[in-house]
């Protein structure tokens, strides 16, 4: 568990593909929220001090929302927060988010940043000095653009015009355990990630093509 001044983060790894699920606890009020629902409630429930207040969804790919039903059934008042265009959440106690909305939970103030690209409804959640990046940014690389509703151009804009404009000491907590470490600061991530060193969109596109071709070879 990582204590960061007025909140703590407990990390769980599992689900379909080394997914991360984060349990955030407000140190002052004890309120708890989850980032994504990729992991069975049985694993996480022992760490709830009370009913969690909300699940913040980084995007609607199945591996990130697979267990929402479980949590919603267990905690009917649980609020599901995700991008306002996400169609799959309507059946839940869903609260749609616009870009740069602030979610106030106890003494925590979490800001949603709309970061489409990996998927059309991708959202990052900023809880200074931390950023939960979902599949938009991992340790060592950006997300990929494999879905019908993915967009390389949007991914470039989201990463370069939004995320990399945040303070360099911002620590990212990604949606999967794909890197050498679970978490990293933006400045360290830039140093180890060719996809974060592009000079332009065309350069980013070339770097992504190179990355994808390297994956096929390996």
């Amino acid at each position: 568990m990582i204590p960061i001044s007025n909140f703590s983060i407990r990390t769980f790894c599992g689900g379909y593909d080394k997914n991360f699920c984060y349990l955030i606890t407000c140190s002052h009020t004890g309120y708890q929220i989850l980032i994504d629902a990729p992991i069975d409630q049985k694993t996480i429930r022992p760490f709830f001090t009370d009913a969690p207040l909300a699940i913040l969804i980084t995007h609607s790919h199945h591996d990130h929302i697979h267990h929402i039903d479980q949590y919603q059934n267990l905690y009917p008042d649980l609020i599901i927060l995700g991008h306002q265009d996400s169609p799959v959440f309507k059946k839940y106690n869903f609260k749609p988010l616009k870009d740069k909305s602030t979610i106030k939970i106890g003494n925590l103030h979490i800001q949603s940043l709309y970061t489409p690209g990996h998927y059309f409804d991708s959202v990052c959640f900023k809880l200074d000095p931390v950023l939960f990046t979902g599949d938009t940014l991992f340790v060592g690389r950006t997300g990929r653009v494999l879905s019908r509703k993915s967009s390389l151009k949007n991914l470039y804009k989201s990463v370069y015009a939004i995320i990399l404009k945040l303070p360099p000491h911002t620590r990212i907590f990604p949606g999967h355990n794909y890197g050498k470490e679970n978490t990293i600061t933006l400045e360290e991530n830039i140093k180890i990630s060719p996809l974060l060193q592009a000079k332009s969109f065309n350069d980013f596109k070339l770097k992504m093509e190179f990355y994808e071709s390297s994956r096929i070879k390996s």
């Binding site: 609260k95 988010l97 616009k98 909305s101 106030k104 939970i105």
Partner: peptide
């Protein structure tokens, strides 16, 4: 009010 009261904030 905060999320418990149903409120969000934004610029």
């Amino acid at each position: 009010g905060g999320l418990i009261d149903g409120y969000l904030y934004k610029e």
